[in-house]
Design a binder for these strands. Structure first.
Lengths: 202, 202
DNA sequence: TAATTTATGTATTGATCAATACATAAATGA
DNA sequence: TCATTTATGTATTGATCAATACATAAATTA
């Protein structure tokens, strides 16, 4: 069945990628519709026809971010053979990802709308839900490692997952403050140096 | 010399404290003048007469935050007798400070304006300057510990300071996401468990 | 008391925001 | 060809923002 009506004059996914860039760099509130439409190369009626609203556009941009920039960091967590490798991968991949653009930008999920009572609470809570999901992903991986015998039974999986999640969040702030790749890799080194004492039977 | 003209009808510092609370919770952009004046109990002409502008009010609120909420965290760094005690104090005091209100709020310096190209770049850079100052404070304390013989000569003071600074920043995000005091204290525990391996002569 | 100075309350300003009205363009189906 | 459907461009809407104009109130100085 062919599409009825005048065909869309722009690439929807390319426009979404541009919108993601703007939201990533400027945050939700500071990304004005004028800036978005300029970056996307369309006018506001086209934006609203294709995406619905600024909030809906952000939600799609967030999903696009997770699928692209975020997948290289989080997807290998379950496939790597040890929890230690998985955690180390998250930290080192984060250090590289946060410093692969001209200007370091950190994580869109952490920085795009940090105030829970900001202008759009539903966006803030959606971002928070996603951050919590990442932490839970680490905690599940640690529990699996306990089940598999890699880690001792009394491992504090919740505390360790929260710790590494905290380090990963902090790297976003450091990246925004201009930290170099070497500095962020050094942060990952320091964080991983706690591994043995954190997972010691005792 | 007595003050000329009609005396101010409100307590300037109390109003500033109220403004700080609003900026702290809502961030610079989302804190509207209406919300600020309502919280401060004054009308906008009084605000502008007393503080100059929204930006100037924020700068004063930031200084007030540093002097009040921040001093308990950072002031003891130089007076504590070991670098280890100093770093531990920063982390544990942060965990307590970030969870002493009804709703966890994290650090105003980290969360009030996270986008460097936000609506007010001068505020973002001022906040960044302050974050960098805190990291430098840790690094200086570590270097002093090397000079005093507490830590070995080849200690990576810059990397260690960046690491603990990163953890402290990450705790702001966790606090905003509702982390409990126990969870943040656990993060501090995990971070401090890296101390021995980070400062081992090797 | 009269002149001066500073603060306050009410109302308003121009700018910017997200979102939309409306006419027109470009496709398909009959 | 002609009706229908969808997209686009121009222009505009009401809301909200930070900041201010202006008249009045409350103090000091002369």
């Amino acid at each position: 069945m062919a599409a009825r009506g005048r065909p869309r004059g722009f690439d929807r996914e390319a426009a979404l990628a541009r919108a993601m860039e703007v939201f990533w760099e400027r945050g939700f509130d500071n990304a004005s519709l004028g800036e978005l439409t300029r970056a996307m190369g369309i006018n506001s009626p086209s934006l609203y026809a294709a995406f619905g609203s600024k909030e809906a556009l952000f939600q799609e941009a967030m999903a696009f971010y997770v699928k692209t920039a975020g997948s290289g960091i989080w997807e290998p967590v379950d496939s790597l053979t040890t929890a230690r490798d998985a955690i180390a991968h998250v930290l080192y991949a984060t250090a590289r990802a946060f410093t692969c653009h001209d200007q370091s930008r950190g994580c869109m999920i952490v920085l795009a709308s940090p105030q829970p009572r900001g202008s759009n609470p539903s966006i803030s809570s959606e971002l928070e839900r996603h951050r919590r999901g990442n932490r839970d992903c680490l905690e599940r991986r640690l529990r699996r490692a306990v089940d598999e015998g890699e880690l001792p039974e009394n491992t504090h999986c919740h505390a360790i997952a929260t710790f590494y999640s905290t380090v990963q969040h902090g790297m976003s702030i450091q990246a925004r403050d201009g930290a170099s790749r070497e500095e962020l890799l050094g942060v990952a080194d320091c964080a991983m140096s706690a591994w043995d004492s954190l997972t010691r039977p005792n």
